[in-house]
Design a protein around this nucleic acid. Structure first.
Ligand SMILES: [Zn+2]
Ligand SMILES: [Zn+2]
Ligand SMILES: [Zn+2]
Ligand SMILES: [Zn+2]
Lengths: 136, 136
DNA sequence: GTGGCATATGTTATATTATTACACAAACCA
DNA sequence: TGGTTTGTGTAATAATATAACATATGCCAC
């Protein structure tokens, strides 16, 4: 049983392998890094990774980080349908965290409405130093 | 005289050519599209474009759109030092607009403080349909 | 002015990220 | 059964970005 409410069932072998790899990783991984991790499981071509990632992103189990061209497993318990996700990405330890709460989504929606923009998808990625690194 | 308060002075030939190309464009352009536009001005290699873009971004005259791997000229009159920039990107007409106002920056800062994250740089890119396209 | 330095440039090669195209196989349903 | 969808394997290619090295140019100290 997965930590995710929607479960990992119905995943194909390739999808499950990619998800496992991302889950085991500290921070985010590029598609080609995932490929390297899975060569001894039979992976040969980038497309095998990209196709699995497409599906996992679609399911909300994985998020794509646009500023890194990389992917990270969703670690929220309520992954399903969280439309607007904001990420903090630590420059020192590469830790990636999802910011929860409606504050950001609310502000973005409100600003979009102000300018007459029909908002469909938000990308919010914050670069800086995480709490742990500041303390340590 | 430029429309930008900080002016275009002190730009090298290559930087000026790249900036002109971006200014003449409707929406955003990829580095390689810029290269193609400038081949008859003597440009031969991607690096000529990337180096100019690096400087222009540094100066705040150009912004990079992470979700598109593309670049857009800054059309704000007060370009200088606008730390947090949010963009709306229209799916239909590819128009890119910068959202002004402190609302977004304020919210992001506040949320970052809440989780102990030392925020250095924000990337906010909103995908949807612009007002003009909705009306038309 | 000469020499050193920082900055910009030109060019080739390479690295990294992502997709197209085509053939095949398994699952599923009519 | 046959047809459709979905997933897969593989090779080739496209698109984006950087490394490495040589050369030039402007500027300042001396
Ligand atoms: Zn998530
Ligand atoms: Zn950290
Ligand atoms: Zn701007
Ligand atoms: Zn539009």
């Amino acid at each position: 049983m997965s930590e995710h409410s929607h479960g990992d069932a119905n995943l194909t072998r390739n999808q499950a392998l990619v998800l496992e790899t991302l889950s085991a990783a500290d921070g985010s991984l590029s598609a080609y890094t995932i490929l390297d991790h899975l060569r001894d499981k039979g992976f040969r071509a980038p497309l095998q990774v990209y196709r699995a990632l497409d599906r996992l992103v679609e399911l909300g189990l994985v998020h794509r980080l646009e500023t890194l061209n990389a992917f990270v497993v969703c670690r929220r318990s309520d992954c399903e349908g969280h439309g607007t996700v904001a990420f903090t990405i630590c420059k020192k330890c590469d830790n990636v965290a999802e910011l929860t709460g409606e504050e950001i989504a609310g502000t973005l929606n409100s600003v979009a409405v102000d300018v007459g923009f029909a908002l469909e998808k938000s990308t919010v990625e914050l670069r800086g130093i995480c709490g742990a690194c500041r303390a340590g």
